[in-house]
């Protein structure tokens, strides 16, 4: 764990503090202040992301530091979209999620600028990573709704019940997960000659996709009869995603073609 005494670090810490303050204010029923702080946190996260892009001179999605920075900026728009369009609650939890996803960028990963290796200089770089980052935020929200269902937490008025909200979040995230997998496969063909090489990251990405394929089939078979199992399935999906995102890149167990993404 390292503290960053840099402009980049400062921006991340201020954004984290704003997300946390928004969370605390909302819990303390100071909703208006919480909303303003939440929006400020989003703007700060965007500035941190933009500053990173300015420093490295490419779309900042090259490594885990940049991916988490990106997630920190995406939490707010996804949260608002889910509440207003999809009627899925969890905005207060999203404020905390915003701080949590910025934590690895702030303390765990180095912000040392890196050049893009030749393999990453492809038009598929941005869409492939961006759709995965979006999908992961939706799936994290699905897992949170699954937790709410297991803990029997009731949603606010006019919002979906947690089991239905989980289903809706997975429906929102799964097409993006599919697109990410397919774009990665096409990129693999263009860069390395194989659209599927059973690289550890590819294998875990396939596993996480399959967990949600299994979820859809299971839910189709039983509907809401086994609501708790549906929720556990969503949590399992997030667990596999976390392994795909973190462990495969960081562990020495999985040497592969995606090792530059640490």
């Amino acid at each position: 764990m390292e503290i960053k005494y840099t402009t980049q670090g400062l921006l991340i810490y201020v954004a984290m503090a704003a997300y946390l303050a928004a969370f605390v204010m909302t819990l303390a029923r100071l909703r208006k202040a919480g909303r303003h702080l939440y929006f400020s946190a989003f703007i700060l996260a965007c500035v941190a992301l933009g500053y990173r892009g300015y420093v490295v001179r490419h779309v900042p999605m090259q490594n885990l530091f940049e991916v988490f920075l990106c997630m920190g900026a995406l939490v707010y728009p996804i949260s608002i979209f889910c509440r207003r369009v999809l009627r899925v609650s969890g905005v207060t939890a999203d404020m905390l999620i915003g701080a949590i996803v910025l934590f690895p960028a702030g303390f765990a990963f180095s912000d040392q600028p890196q050049h893009l290796p030749p393999a990453l200089q492809c038009w598929l770089f941005t869409p492939h990573v961006a759709v995965y980052v979006l999908a992961y935020v939706f799936m994290a929200k699905a897992a949170y709704q699954g937790l709410c269902q297991l803990a029997d937490i009731k949603p606010r008025q006019n919002m979906l019940e947690p089991e239905q909200a989980t289903y809706r979040m997975i429906r929102a995230g799964f097409p993006l997960l599919t697109l990410g997998l397919i774009l990665g496969s096409i990129w693999g063909k263009i860069a390395w000659g194989d659209y599927w090489g059973w690289d550890p990251k590819e294998s875990f990405s396939l596993a996480s996709w399959l967990v949600y394929v299994g979820y859809f089939h299971f839910r189709y078979m039983f509907g809401k009869k086994h609501a708790r199992l549906n929720s556990i399935w969503a949590l399992l999906g997030l667990a596999v995603i976390i392994v795909t995102l973190f462990w495969v890149n960081l562990s020495q167990l999985f040497a592969g073609l995606h090792s530059y993404a640490t």
């Binding site: 090489g197 059973w198 550890p200 294998s203 596993a207 495969v248 167990l253 073609l257």
Partner: peptide
């Protein structure tokens, strides 16, 4: 089965 096999595949290397 394919989920489990994919995870196994990740452990043994490409």
């Amino acid at each position: 089965a394919l989920t489990i096999l994919s995870i196994y595949g990740a452990f043994v290397g490409a």
